[in-house]
């Protein structure tokens, strides 16, 4: 009986645990391919790091906005500036929020990466970028972003594309 109880507890715990998040270590071409892959009406791209407090503060809003709008064709691509060794921590943080989209740890040249997302961006974290479904950039938030910021700009793009 104690054994069955232990098994039941383990099963319940496994059921309650967030699903594992896949985090790929990738360079710019793979990241841009994920951003521009067909099938989305709008794509939000957020650059963050596990140790970056403003990044961690805004992440729940970003993930909640994504979950509220993914049925309308919103994709959220999360790019971490953490070191490769932090991969499990990146996955843990995103898993705890229930994120299930593409997640990367960025490798390779910073300048090419920064300019690909926005030539006016100087590289400070956090930063969020909005692309339309054709891969054209529509908006940059260089600094923290809120659910309301996103709602004002992204919802309009999703609505126009319905």
């Amino acid at each position: 009986m104690p054994m069955m109880s232990a098994l039941l507890v383990a099963l319940l715990a496994a059921d309650a645990a967030p699903p594992p998040v896949r985090v790929d270590v990738a360079e710019l071409p793979a990241i841009m391919a994920a951003i521009k892959a067909p099938g989305a009406q709008a794509v939000l791209v957020n650059v963050w790091a596990t140790w970056c407090e403003p990044c961690r503060e805004e992440m729940p809003d970003l993930v909640r906005f994504y979950r509220d709008h993914r049925a309308q064709g919103l994709r959220l691509v999360l790019i971490s500036a953490d070191d490769d060794e932090q991969r499990s921590e990146v996955a843990r943080v995103l898993g705890a929020l229930g994120f299930d989209g593409p997640a990367f740890i960025k490798r390779g040249n910073d300048m090419a990466f920064i300019d690909a997302l926005d030539p006016k961006w100087k590289g400070a974290l956090p930063a969020t970028f909005m692309f339309d479904g054709r891969g054209a950039k529509k908006k940059s938030w260089l600094g923290s972003v809120t659910y309301d910021d996103l709602r004002r700009r992204v919802s309009g793009l999703l609505a126009r594309r319905k």
Partner: peptide, 9 residues
């Protein structure tokens, strides 16, 4: 002129 990722001031 160059750029690199960094922490916000």
């Amino acid at each position: 002129e160059t750029k690199g990722l960094g922490c916000s001031i």
